Computed example of a mutant assay.
Amino acid sequence: MIVAIDGPAGVGKSTIAKAIAQRSAFFYISSGKFYRAVTLYALEQGIDVEKKEGLVDLVASLSFSIRQGELYIGARNVEPFLHTDRIDALVATVSAYPPLREEINKALRKTTAEMNVVMEGRDITTVVFPDAEVKIFLDASVETRAMRRFRQGTSELSYDELVDSIRSRDTIDREKPVGGLKVADDALYIDSSDLTIDQVCEKVVQEIFRAEQKVNQEKDGSDD
């Protein structure tokens, strides 16, 4: 079963997806980590992400794997290096490049074949897994997301700068020609601005339970 969770930057998709995966004994995978890893390696190798040249070849040269919920490139755990202000500023530009998205999507589908997975990102419900059994769109106001990031203490930006950064990121994500951020017609929309993590998780778990009942009913019907 695929549980696909979409939503804008800073909405808490990773936190929710990890919690749901743990409760459901599913594997957790973040598509955004793949794009952040490509951005990291592009910066380390001096590739101009604005010009896009060399990005697709770079992806082809990287060996992605998930180990205990963390992303590895070859034998290197890149998890500690993926959330910096520099990567935050560039990853939307990198992920907006259609040929790159096609390669990453192939890798995501291959990795999750025949697995029970909770995956979060920007276009998981609409492009990567349009036939996912469970689709969730997690949202929150720009102000709420900026305050959450500010309180984490992982950014050197002020609260007002974070508001501007997140709003700019939202615009880029929504206007992408391929894989733009949008709510799938059959997705459950959840505004988490005034909800706790447990309250959001409960809504998602209920949706998974309904999907599992539907799958079982369809299976029983086909056996008749």
Rank of each mutant, 00 (worst) to 15 (best):
S63F: 05
S63Y: 06
I66R: 00
G69V: 04
G69H: 02
R76M: 04
R76G: 00
N77Y: 01
V78A: 01
E79K: 00
E79L: 00
E79A: 00
P80F: 01
P80V: 05
L82V: 03
T84D: 07
I87K: 08
A89W: 08
V91A: 09
T93D: 15
V94T: 11
V94C: 13
Y97A: 06
P98E: 11
P98M: 11
P99Q: 07
R101D: 10
E103G: 04
I104A: 04
I104M: 03
N105A: 15
K106Q: 10
A107W: 04
L108Y: 08
T111H: 08
V117Y: 01
D123Q: 14
D123F: 13
I124M: 15
T125V: 11
T126A: 11
T126E: 13
V127G: 11
F129C: 12
P130G: 15
P130I: 11
D131S: 14
A132M: 06
A132F: 05
A132H: 04
E133S: 14
V134W: 07
I136T: 07
F137G: 05
D139I: 02
D139V: 02
V142E: 05
V142Q: 00
T144K: 12
R145Y: 06
M147F: 09
M147E: 14
R151T: 06
R151H: 10
G153L: 06
S155Q: 12
Y159V: 13
Y159Q: 11
